[in-house]
């Protein structure tokens, strides 16, 4: 009996000593499972990107761990962001993918976000979003100048928040537009239908999405045609090559700064991150692996087939974006006060 007890104590001691193992690059991930937690439901853009990355990242991580993707949707990925920040293990085995706008919203004071963007360990992001707005042919208006000159209250369909609401707001406040923002639509798909039904005149969301899901409307002619009139970013596509840029129409310096800060979330859309407190060496392993995946032939082929754009932004660059967001001057932050969700005063 005594021998057995001593034996057990010895085994426990050995194991206890081993739990403080350091993360040697060669075998830290060996035999382990890497969990990706996506803040949105299966089938959406975040999920598609994450699953494609998860398929190929393992071969670039020494030890080739197995990968699983889990959907933790709810509250526009706030739940996932909070989980990664507060509850996920700090051993580098849980990677979070959530809406970059959460960082901006936290900086603006949204208390439902129990995070600090600066403390996340950013691995990188596989894509960027280019915001754009479009209007329907039946309005007779064809460009941003047309819209402002006509002073007609153009109806923009919108969901309850995000790009669809905030972009028209910004143009109303800072560029002299008179958009009538009709919120309440359940998604960009229903807004598109309302545009075809002539219930609303236009909407704002991302060019990445427009060029694939609304292709039929872009290719239509006459009244049925959807005409992009403003965009952020340079594209070769003929529909948007020469239209107005957001930065051009916002004349005031502080307004432009405000837009840049607000838009930076789109410059690192769908970021992958590790929980605060994860060892630096682990972060390095993941950053290297991610960068390699972005150049992986098979990843690029898959992304192309799914019509996912490949626009890699490194973890270091994401850190810079985040730092800039939090370094926003007070008077610029003031300009953006309308983006904060209403709360009890």
């Amino acid at each position: 009996m005594k021998t057995i007890t001593r034996g057990i104590v010895a085994v426990m001691a050995i194991l206890a000593l081993n739990t403080g193992a350091d993360a040697r690059a060669e075998d830290y991930y060996a035999g382990k499972n890497l969990r990706f937690i996506v803040g949105f439901a299966a089938g959406g853009g975040y999920d598609a990107y994450t699953r494609t990355v998860a398929r190929y990242i393992s071969r670039h991580i020494p030890g080739s761990p197995s990968t699983t993707v889990e959907n933790m949707d709810g509250a526009g990925s706030v739940i996932a962001a909070n989980h990664i920040y507060n509850k996920a293990s700090r051993d580098g085995l849980t990677v979070g993918v959530f809406d970059a706008h959460n960082i901006f919203n936290h900086m603006m004071g949204d208390a439902s976000l129990r995070i600090d963007g600066r403390k996340f360990l950013w691995i990188g992001t596989p894509s960027k979003d280019s915001v754009a707005c479009a209007i329907m042919g039946f309005t007779g208006l064809k460009s941003f100048d047309d819209i402002v000159k006509s002073q007609k209250p153009v109806k923009m369909g919108a969901t309850r928040g995000g790009n669809t609401v905030q972009l028209p707001e910004m143009m109303n406040r800072w560029a002299g537009a008179k958009f009538n923002i009709i919120t309440g639509y359940t998604g960009t798909a229903t807004i598109r239908l309302a545009m075809r039904a002539k219930e609303v005149d236009g909407a704002c969301w991302t060019w990445d999405s427009m060029r694939s899901t609304a292709r039929a409307m872009l290719d239509a002619k006459g009244d049925e045609q959807m005409i992009p009139f403003i965009i952020n970013g340079k594209w070769e596509d003929s529909e948007v090559k020469n239209i107005a840029q957001f930065q051009e129409v916002f004349k005031d310096k502080d307004n432009r700064h405000a837009f840049t800060t607000w838009n930076s979330s789109n410059d690192f859309a769908r970021p992958f991150s590790l929980s605060p407190g994860t060892p630096k060496e682990v972060l390095q392993i993941m950053r290297k692996a991610f960068a390699a995946t972005m150049k992986d032939k098979d990843y690029i082929a898959d992304a192309e087939k799914s019509k996912l754009t490949v626009e890699y932004v490194s973890g270091e660059e994401v850190e810079k974006f985040v730092a800039e967001i939090y370094a926003i001057p007070a008077q610029v932050k003031e300009r953006l006060s309308f983006t904060v969700r209403k709360k009890k005063s």
Binding site: A41, A42, G43, G44, A48, A189, T190, R192, L193, R196, S212, T213, A214, R215, A216, M217, D219, K305, S306, K307
Partner: peptide, 24 residues
């Protein structure tokens, strides 16, 4: 119209995009 009536339809829409077919 490429407007999905339900979540499953939204995913099928993704399949169209993968196959390079434009709903419409």
């Amino acid at each position: 119209f490429g407007v999905p009536g339900s979540v499953s339809m939204a995913i099928l829409l993704g399949a169209f995009i993968i196959q390079g077919i434009v709903p419409g």
